[in-house]
């Protein structure tokens, strides 16, 4: 089937099997290797993308579901202000990532900054836990996101909504 969607701001069209996974399409057809296709079960989180603004596991998105959607990968996310805020905050928090899942971690953090309402600490940890990262401690990742939220929202970020 023909699958048409917006990818990192550009219209794309390709022929794909309806059940071909979006993670495979993005890596193999578009060369977007920032995302990994490891578990293919929605567990590791290393394949996350923004699909119509929601952070999802692209391995759980069949090609037919991508039709008519807007997909943003890490490559597209890197050009946003949210990325700059997240990257700086992780660096300042000393949250050093090994390079294997940092794209996914940054996008997870970015989804919290872009959220319509201020997330609670519990919600922050829920989202960050979507990415199976062994490099950074949960408290340090939480600290990085809190810094990012303070920076993007201005002023001191409260502990809970």
């Amino acid at each position: 089937m023909i699958v048409e969607f917006i990818l990192n701001g550009e219209d794309v069209s390709l022929k794909a099997d309806p059940l071909e996974r979006l993670s495979d399409l993005l890596r193999e057809r578009f060369g977007l290797t920032s995302l990994m296709s490891d578990c293919r079960e929605g567990v590791c989180g290393k394949c996350v993308v923004f699909l119509d603004g929601l952070l999802v596991n692209s391995c759980m998105v069949p090609a037919f579901k991508a039709r008519g959607t807007e997909v943003v990968t890490y490559e597209g996310f890197k050009s946003t202000d949210s990325y700059a805020t997240v990257e700086r905050s992780f660096r300042e928090a000393g949250a050093e990532l090994c390079g294997f899942c940092d794209s996914a971690m940054y996008m997870a953090a970015g989804s919290l900054i872009d959220a319509a309402s201020r997330p609670s600490e519990e919600e922050i940890m829920e989202v960050l836990s979507s990415v199976y990262c062994r490099c950074v401690t949960p408290s340090r990742a939480l600290g990085a996101v809190r810094t990012a939220l303070e920076s993007s929202l201005g002023g001191k970020y409260g502990r809970a909504r």
């Binding site: 929605g42 567990v43 996350v48 952070l55 596991n57 759980m60 829920e126 989202v127």
Partner: peptide
């Protein structure tokens, strides 16, 4: 699942 799975 995880938060990202629950988004779908």
């Amino acid at each position: 699942g995880t938060a990202t799975v629950r988004n779908m």
